[in-house]
Amino acid sequence: MNLPRLRLIYLAQFPQITRSLMYRMIKKDVTLSTIYQYSINDLVDQCHCPLKTAKQLHQYLSEFEPNHNNLKKLHHYKIWTIFDEDYPRLLKNIPDPPIILYGLGRSDYINHLPALAVVGTRRPSKFAKKNMYDLLAPLVNKDWLFVSGMAAGIDGYAHRIADYYGGKTIAVIAGGLNHPYPSEHLDLFQRLSKKHLVISEYPPHTRPERYHFPERNRIISGLAFATLVIEAQERSGSLITADQALEQGREVLAVPNAISLEQAKGCHYLIQNGAKLVQSTYDILQEWDELKQNWLHL
């Protein structure tokens, strides 16, 4: 029985816990054994926990046991913790890696290479589907994996291309696995969670919040050697993902389009600022060929 791991997973189910508080607690004691013995004042003074939260957390920690019902509820999920040897290697060295990931489906996909993050607008143009098919279908045949966020529009297209043509895909969702979003992708979620892989850093009972979406983007980019932006407006979550990819030392690729197209402006901005312009699948393959030795030996 791995008690430090169980303590961490149990702690993560506390409704008011934050990632920054968990990091502070782990920094104090990586096994969390001391933390579980803290008084309310210790939680306030040592972990900078607000008093109201500290009182609730102290009571919650006192109820821990390896067979606690909160842990039993998680038995059918694959769980990776930052303590685990099989923690995704591509996420180990990114800034602010997730402390815990919950998964449904093909857990072996988590370390698959080459992996390409594919992101874009929720309101794609009429050109988007054909462009995506032309660029991505040949990669499916070469055993590439696509990572995206299961959102409407470009994300959903990327997952469906991988699924339809017998490829591999990972969906990183905002909120917990018991609350897939958006509702119109429930059928896609069910398919991906059986044939592919769906992951989240939030406990399964967590409903999606607005701040979850930009947070999960760092995992999308972190699981791939490069992020491909298909269509995006100038101020969008896709550009946040591109920024996070650069911060993580990943490549950013962007597809150009008509200058009159609102959905092209974000991609053109990225290209102006150094992203690789992608006109064909060859451009993506060339990028991987130049960089793969850096990734295959991680």
Rank of each mutant, 00 (worst) to 15 (best):
Q293D: 13
L192Y: 05
K265P: 00
F64R: 05
N2Y: 03
L177D: 04
Y164I: 10
P204L: 10
L136F: 02
Q233V: 00
L113C: 10
K130I: 11
Y36V: 02
L51I: 14
Y10V: 04
L57F: 10
A226C: 06
N273A: 01
K194E: 14
E247N: 14
E209P: 05
V198Q: 01
I259D: 01
G249E: 07
A54I: 01
K52I: 15
K292C: 10
N41V: 12
E215R: 15
L136R: 13
L285E: 15
L239Y: 00
D84N: 10
N294C: 11
G274D: 04
T227F: 08
F127E: 01
D29V: 02
G167F: 08
Q248F: 05
Y157D: 10
H205W: 06
F83Y: 15
S20E: 15
Y23W: 14
I9G: 04
C47E: 10
D243W: 07
D45R: 15
H297N: 14
Q233R: 01
E287L: 14
I284R: 07
I230Y: 06
S148A: 04
V229C: 02
L136V: 07
S39A: 05
E231T: 00
S200L: 09
Y60R: 05
A152V: 12
Y38S: 09
I173N: 12
F64D: 05
Y282K: 14
A151T: 03
R235C: 00
W288R: 04
S125H: 08
H68W: 02
A224Q: 12
K27C: 10
K195W: 06
Q279S: 14
Y157F: 15
H112F: 11
L71M: 07
Y133C: 14
D155N: 03
L116K: 13
N257L: 03
A128K: 05
K292T: 06
L90R: 12
F127L: 06
R210V: 12
L6T: 01
I220N: 15
Y165W: 15
E251W: 09
L136Q: 08
I219E: 04
A264Y: 00
D42Q: 03
Y165Q: 13
P180L: 08
L43F: 03
L32R: 09
I35A: 12
I161Y: 10
S39W: 02
L57M: 09
L186S: 11
R24D: 09
L188A: 12
N111P: 05
H48G: 06
Y87W: 05
D283K: 01
A232T: 00
A174K: 03
P15D: 07
I173Q: 13
D42A: 01
H48M: 08
Y181T: 09
V30R: 15
R160G: 02
P114S: 06
K73G: 01
R216E: 11
G176Q: 05
P50W: 07
Q286F: 09
L145A: 11
A224F: 13
H297G: 07
A128E: 05
G149A: 08
R123V: 00
S238M: 01
G120R: 05
Y109A: 11
L296M: 11
I17C: 11
N294F: 13
R7G: 06
I161K: 11
L186K: 15
I110E: 03
